[in-house]
């Protein structure tokens, strides 16, 4: 059981949330111009890293708001929690890769 820290409600059990997969996947700006390959990419292809992963969760049994989490998919450790209007934090990526455990 993960313990996730909802930005609005605080720490709650994983069972209060639903998972939303990879974060930072924007809807295509001009959908009518997309090729079939680009649609396939948008609809079906997501990152699947073994390590830090920026992902979406929704507090469905609480405030019902979406937010983002950076979590290590090897250890399941939560590295950062942030709202969807925040940029992706550096934690776990780039300079701080392999950071705090």
């Amino acid at each position: 059981m993960l313990l996730l820290n909802c930005p609005w409600c605080g720490p709650r059990d994983e069972t209060e949330y639903h998972y939303g997969g990879q974060a930072h996947v924007p809807y295509p700006e001009e959908p009518s111009t997309l090729t079939d390959e680009e649609w396939a990419e948008y609809l079906f292809f997501r990152d699947n890293p073994c390590g830090p992963f920026a992902e979406r969760w929704v507090h469905s049994a609480g405030c019902r708001r979406w937010f983002n989490v950076v979590r290590d998919t090897r250890t399941y450790q939560v590295l950062a929690v942030y709202t969807h209007s925040d940029p992706r934090p550096a934690v776990g990526f780039g300079a701080q890769a392999g950071g705090p455990r």
Binding site: M1, L2, T15, Y19, F53, E55, R71, T73, R74, Y76
Partner: peptide, 13 residues
Amino acid sequence: DAYNGYGQRGSFH
């Protein structure tokens, strides 16, 4: 388990 994971373990619930 709903989340992506490479840990060969899941949640107890």
